[in-house]
Design a protein around this nucleic acid. Sequence first.
DNA 1: CTGAAAGCGCTTACAG
DNA 2: CTGAAAGCGCTTACAG
Lengths: 367, 367
Amino acid sequence: MPRPRKPKSSRAATLADVGRAAGVSAMAASAVLNSVKTSSRISAETRERILAAAAELQYRPNAAARALLHRRMNTIGVAAVVDDKNELNHYFLALLNGVLTAATHHEQNTTVFALHDWSNDTRRLDSVCDGRIDGLILFAPTFDAEVGRKLPAHTPYVTIHANHAVEGVVNIESDEENGAFMMVEHLLAQGHRRIMHIAGPEGFTGADRRVTGYRRALKKHKVRFERSLVVHSLFDDTHGHEAMRGWLQHHAGEPLPHAVFCANDAIAIGCIEALAECGLRVPDDISVAGFDDTLASRASVPQLTTVRQPLVQMGRQATQILLERIGTIPNVPPPPSPVVLPVEVVERASVGPRPAVDRIVPALKRR
Amino acid sequence: MPRPRKPKSSRAATLADVGRAAGVSAMAASAVLNSVKTSSRISAETRERILAAAAELQYRPNAAARALLHRRMNTIGVAAVVDDKNELNHYFLALLNGVLTAATHHEQNTTVFALHDWSNDTRRLDSVCDGRIDGLILFAPTFDAEVGRKLPAHTPYVTIHANHAVEGVVNIESDEENGAFMMVEHLLAQGHRRIMHIAGPEGFTGADRRVTGYRRALKKHKVRFERSLVVHSLFDDTHGHEAMRGWLQHHAGEPLPHAVFCANDAIAIGCIEALAECGLRVPDDISVAGFDDTLASRASVPQLTTVRQPLVQMGRQATQILLERIGTIPNVPPPPSPVVLPVEVVERASVGPRPAVDRIVPALKRR
DNA sequence: CTGAAAGCGCTTACAG
DNA sequence: CTGAAAGCGCTTACAG
């Protein structure tokens, strides 16, 4: 004899509860609610009774129980390192948009993990490969191959903009070198010759590729490369600001660059601020270009001329490939790795023609 | 006799696998790995053997099985409506930052649901209240109380900036009316008298409160309210741009406002662009203020003077309260609803003193 | 102190 | 066609 249960209102109804309310077995309820073989097994009248009971009790098949059976949570994880201020950034936002769109389209959920450091937080990622996610997307991981291989073998993952290739892991990237090349060609086409580059941190694949593209464009157009025109910065506006300001400070009285090509939009925004503080206007006095085409490039005034990386699409594609590996969606032939997406120059307002007269770096006002 | 299992490398190891590898029962393995009563039950040597086996097999306690037992996934959900372009925005990003920080701190995971429409997508939220999340945080929901009450009773939720109060649901908000009041007082203190307001959409609580604060400040300082100085816009830069441009078009030849108070940062950015297109410079010719203090307010050049809503903290606090309701963390006395957080004026560069001479709205250049 | 059993909620495969 | 049973992986409560 079944013990009477205390109907705690806070407890979710189970199949047994539904069955009891409808006067049938849990199994019959299951059959109806999964709508398989309904007509053949269960009378229309019983069916209605079960449906009504389920609605009344706000029944939902328990996800944990199903996951235990199917070994699938229908959830993917995305992991990203957050920046200095412990905040997610525009780059993350764009990728997340793509992941959410694709995941939702395939009725998959998305769990977000914000890490502070790839190499140290690998443990935390590890601990989450416990069946609660079916796979993982890593945004711009900088761990080395060895750390990557330490992730549990049973959780498939793909990377976006990985700093190092990991054997057997698909990496999605964009044609960054070519993007830099095209942007610098665009600046040259506007007549600019003295083109500064605020690069990303040294040793980052993405930053290095932009430098390479920058140099290749200069070389092609026979503009001499000057080491003093390249400075490095972290990928945020604060450091971009400091980099530009520092350069101006050390080069007062020298010829002002015609244009500054920045390694991402955030740096470009910091750069424009630093220029504004010296009374230099963009693009009238000096042109500034970004990279990424994040929301920030449109929030900036003037709007940034930038290199569009298809970040949303990259997030979408990473999700697609991951779901194929998991087996959630049909397995097309495995993609080659890396998957390289094309980039393009987006012309907005921060780049103009070369000014009629060359200028000198003004002496910096004290802050 | 246990059937030999085919060791599919893709399958995660179970407690039984670990036990077998170590020559003990699954239960013994469980006891060791949960590190309860270890010394008393299991010899140090056996313990080592079990630990080694678990490491070797990359064992992780299955989350679904645990969730089935504990009725807890240690995961919360956040749901937000994405904007026109189906993209998440700065406001969302800031709140998410707060939620992730707090959730991670309590070792909880966060699943993100991006919806297109509150009233229609309530079904989708419903379907996800199936044990995969322990509770839900709703970002700026605009559904009415009735829809809200349709969410399954067994899933607790809290709201942030809800458009309507729902009985029994804690809402976290900020003191928006006062924020608007303080900002308009700040503009008045700079000498501005003719202050335009680009409000949010009519019928939105947050937008209405800003209008109220705006009017209250004008009244207190005996500045006549002019209906023609208030226009409405959606909460994004495109509509902010249109709103400002449209106003200028219809008021050519009339006195230019001294300042524009915008209902959020995105509108302010669109507004600055529209002004720039007419050759009006901020803040030299006209001051512009935003609301929210999102990342965008710092990406803008000039940086926006704005009202800081503590969005990150609101996300954090919402998480805290939700986890208390779930029972994950100790239950302090239930907070009053709504929880109202203080706001403050952040002075940056987009607001300056009132120009020496009043100006006339210039005739608009054709686009 | 140790192991076998029961049960979380569900579904699949198997007897009646 | 229908119901009882077994099992997903784990932990808790109970016999030995």
